[in-house]
Amino acid sequence: MKSEVVKKVVKTIKVNLDKCNGCRACEMACSAFHAEPKYSSINPARSRIRVVTDPLNDEYVPIRATDYTKAGCDGRRVYTINGKEYSECSFCGTICPTRDLFKDPDSGLPLKCDLCNNDPPLEEPMCVQACSLDALTYEETEEEEIEELKLDEMEIGLKSLIDKYGLQKLADSFARMSQKG
């Protein structure tokens, strides 16, 4: 099997929970940047980053929207960190039906974080720029990844047909069949 080494830029926003003061400027900035046209409205409910807040539990967790899922999980895992209980939902960015988060308030459509993909690109995503406390920091790392060139299912099928009938015959049949439609 052939394989090759590819270089990939991995972009991420790191979250330091100890530095968050719960001000939600990240939400404000995200909603402004993703408004159409840009900055035209402010609405944290449209933000793709939300600070899960429970002051009496000293809980301040900024989470970013990841993928949409049709089904919610049971969400019943509870973690205790330094004596404070956290629901697993506090750390979960999945856009799911069990909670009212990362859905456009008008259309209900999922809102996924795109790291402020823009042309020209931003130096840092807007939420990171808005976080003056460095609870959110942006990191780009270059990672080398070995990518194996795997054949997919159709290619495996075609290859076995070529082995049996030869390439020319297969090409002729393919041409004839495509003309017939």
Binding site: D18, N21, G22, C23, D58, C131
Partner: peptide, 15 residues
């Protein structure tokens, strides 16, 4: 921790 109010980076409240 010390927390702040909406959209403000200060940390005026001692918890």
């Amino acid at each position: 921790r010390q927390v702040g109010c909406y959209n403000c980076p200060k940390k005026c409240v001692n918890v």
